[in-house]
Design a protein around this nucleic acid. Sequence first.
RNA 1: GGCGCAUUCGUCUAGUGGCUUAGGACGCCGCCCUCUCAAGGCGGAGAUCACGGGUUCGAAUCCCGUAUGCGCUACCA
Length: 486
Amino acid sequence: MISDVVRVRFAPSPTGYLHVGGLRTALYNYLFAKHNNGKFVLRIEDTDRNRYVEGAVENLITTMKWAGLDYDEGPEIGGEFGPYFQSQRLEIYNKYVNELIEKGNAYRCFCSAERIQNLREEQQAKKLQAKYDKHCLNLTKEEIEQKMQAGEQYVIRLNVPVNQRILIEDIVRGHVEFNSDTVDDQILIKSDGFPTYHLANVVDDHLMKITHVIRGEEWLTSTPKHVLLYDFFEWERPKFAHLPLLLNPDKSKLSKRQGDVAVEDYQKKGYLKEALINFVALLGWNAGDDVEIYEMEQLIEKFSLERVNKAGAVFNVEKLDWLNFEHLKNKPNEDILSMLKEELKNSKYAEKNFSDEYLLNVIESMKERVSFVKEFIEKSFYYFESPTEFDESVIQKRWKEDTPQQLTELRSAFEKLDNPNKEDFENALRSTAEKLNVGAGKLIHPLRLAVSGTGQGPGLFDLLFTLGKEEVIRRINTALETIKPN
RNA sequence: GGCGCAUUCGUCUAGUGGCUUAGGACGCCGCCCUCUCAAGGCGGAGAUCACGGGUUCGAAUCCCGUAUGCGCUACCA
């Protein structure tokens, strides 16, 4: 046993932002750890100095925190298996790779980039698999010694055995078999002294006592290299689970070209973390029942790797929108209030002041009509400013010849009200309708148009109550002056 | 090209040999409710389970092949 508790890791390379595919991988790791009372480790795979991006790690951490994926060990918080940045673990990789060299499982390669390039072209011309020809494996100790003395640059390669079956047991895919002849003598240590992913991830996973390697399917074909390394070191292999890829609508691997891929893009668009997590959880996994709406706790309770799908999943934004609507609806109005206030601050109504009570009424009346917090402002702008235009098609349909006169009558009825509540408005309207001998609809629709400028929205009496008597009368007057009957 | 993985409604999926005239969800359409729009309720269209062979009394489910898609094939991760 590697460890008596489940230990998993999310090991991104800091290339700038957290990809939604990465979010899903991180989530599955997190869920698996939490479900099994295990530990979730964050490890930064920053061994490629050419791809270093300023601020990427901070950004990654911020995004993970936003999503609620708290890790037990990793950058900022540390842990007993640190450091958690691979760039700070160089001596460790060195020590282990030397062990491999001594055992003959790895060797120094002094080949020039040109020779490798030519080799590859030759192989491609013959339609052969492109792989290193073990040329430097034939170097004698003395030759190696001499080249090193001369300061020649070299890399360290994995000495892959010839014609050997490599069997891998994957939790989501079952048995997968490779022949070692299809595996290249992978570079373990680059000429700059940094390890490649393959060496670093194996050494670290072992040292950090990782029990389950849960990662994207793009790693499946390099797993033989990793497995070989575990065997050479005589280390127990962790269990592997390779997750299906997230796809564009055209089924290619999810990419920037065809939409947003950064978690922060969705965050900026106003998606709730609950919705994004819920959505991404269901992309490649389901509990076997018909439940679609999940909170994090329920995901933790129900998640298992055995129920992860094999095939890639298209990232379909329509369903995400629906989930956002559902999760927004499930939120207490008080929570939405603070989000709405934030949204208002960044809107053209930033200068205006609205009481919490007023906004809470807005929220209650619009909750079932919006999918995003910003839509409270966009869809029911009339709560934040008087309408200046009136929907032409609604005028056509609802504003009749006798409407002005009827609304005038209604206005007088409203004027008599004292601090009216919802019911008072309704009673006043209905009795006016009766008095005028018309159906209530004859007043309701034009009145909605008059106070909101549109033909849709919350129940009229909720609207009137929230707006208040004075404002309602003001708006009726404006409408009466502006709208010409047709 | 080589190697690997995958393939059920447009999309996410249920299904692990008989319970399936293949179930649910999103989206779409219709009806009901109704002061509008939503929400909600009800219903509909939508999958010859990629294709072809087997195995079996019986296959979406097991096996083989083909096709297609995707991934990997870097001194990237």
